[in-house]
Design a protein around this nucleic acid. Structure first.
Lengths: 213, 213
DNA sequence: GCATCAATACCCACAAGAGGGGGTTTTGGT
DNA sequence: ACCAAAACCCCCTCTTGTGGGTATTGATGC
């Protein structure tokens, strides 16, 4: 068997170097490829498609979820495995719905990556224990979206949530974006419903986790 | 010259492995020691004091700022270098005031670590460019604490800010902690003043960044 | 070419929550 | 004895959250 060619996507190059060092002696994993952002990942895949993309969820600018969507849309044959320290259900669900074949939580035992890669390359799905637990537990506040369905945010909504996380009030946001305060409130309302959160705090956490601030 | 014995403290073991691999050929850095948390770092330092501790700011349970304070209190002779992807002024100032000899932003050029270590071991202070920039720019909202002085949070305040970041309302927090809603509001007020933020959003970001949620 | 839909933007009104001003009392530790 | 932390209180304003709605645009489908 030829080794599985894996493209590591992570904001920290140290993580890539750590993975290379850790699996240097492995005959089944080829971890030589690296991209620091979603954009460079897409360029890399277009130029030299790997067998599998190991994709961090928290990436600057274009985050892991966006990157996953773009990857799946343009290169559906390339497998992808989400890789993150976060194991909140929003992220696990989002990545799986965008086409990831699994969700590997960082800091698991070293044997987990090769196992997960084998499972995924064989057409299966791998979920780390804590990711599976999050999915099983479901959403915390289920009044609004008990289905837990994932809905992508629009560009405008992302602008809004970013400014909310930057401590701006509705009045300031409306001034900054040249829209009325009522419109800002509508966007916040839609965001809270989509993300299944109760308050500003939930919006801020989402934005911070997705590296939008 | 004997190599500088460095204890790497980072939630991700991959970062340690990456550093080891990156500087494997260096004769001046000995990166063999590792601790995943602040507590284990303190045990490690007590048992076998290194020359320098490379301390991440975002650590679970006891975060980097707490760990820095404890390290400096118990082992003032051990140098410490903060190491983080974050370069917000609150973190840079806090780490320096707790006794760090510098602030190294992750993902800088590979030459930066050896340089910083040399500077620090010679008694100097090293700040990565973006950390220096943050300090120079000062706080965003300076009305409240223009001095930018760092004030530690009390245990109770941390409980409060954690619950705020978990989307709890004042009423829910008061019920959870068996205190009155007015007390919760007082704590929030004190927190906002101490952390120099304007709203819940700022509190949530602080709590998320410090891994308190 | 027209229907349809999602995204964006806007509006009113009311309730709930958070923010800011001023305080006081109790408790535990040095 | 002192001090800081923690807890409590009132009052008032501002911001947010929630309940309803409507209008405009631009892209997609048929």
């Amino acid at each position: 068997m030829a080794p599985v060619r894996i493209l590591v996507v992570d904001a920290l190059e140290l993580v890539h170097e750590g993975l290379k060092a850790r699996y240097a002696k492995s005959l089944e994993l080829d971890l030589s490829a690296y991209a620091p952002t979603g954009e460079t990942m897409l360029l890399h895949v277009a130029a030299a498609p790997p067998d599998l993309v190991l994709l961090d969820v928290s990436l600057p600018v274009m985050d892991g979820i966006d990157a996953m969507r773009a990857l799946h849309a343009r290169h559906p044959q390339v497998k992808a495995l989400a890789h993150s320290l976060l194991h909140g259900i929003e992220y696990v669900n989002s990545m799986l719905l965008e086409g990831a074949s699994g969700y590997l939580v960082k800091n698991g035992p070293p044997e987990e990556l090769p196992q997960a890669v084998r499972t995924v390359m064989a057409g299966g799905r791998h979920l780390s224990p804590s990711a599976r637990e999050a999915v099983d537990k479901g959403y915390t506040y289920t009044e609004k979206r008990p289905d837990g369905e994932y809905i992508g945010l629009t560009a405008r909504e992302r602008e809004i949530i970013r400014l909310v996380a930057l401590e701006r009030t509705n009045a300031e946001i409306s001034a900054a974006l040249f829209i009325s305060e009522d419109t800002v409130k509508t966007h916040r309302r839609n965001l809270m419903t989509k993300l299944n959160v109760r308050s500003t705090a939930g919006l801020v956490r989402y934005a911070v986790d997705r590296c939008w601030v």
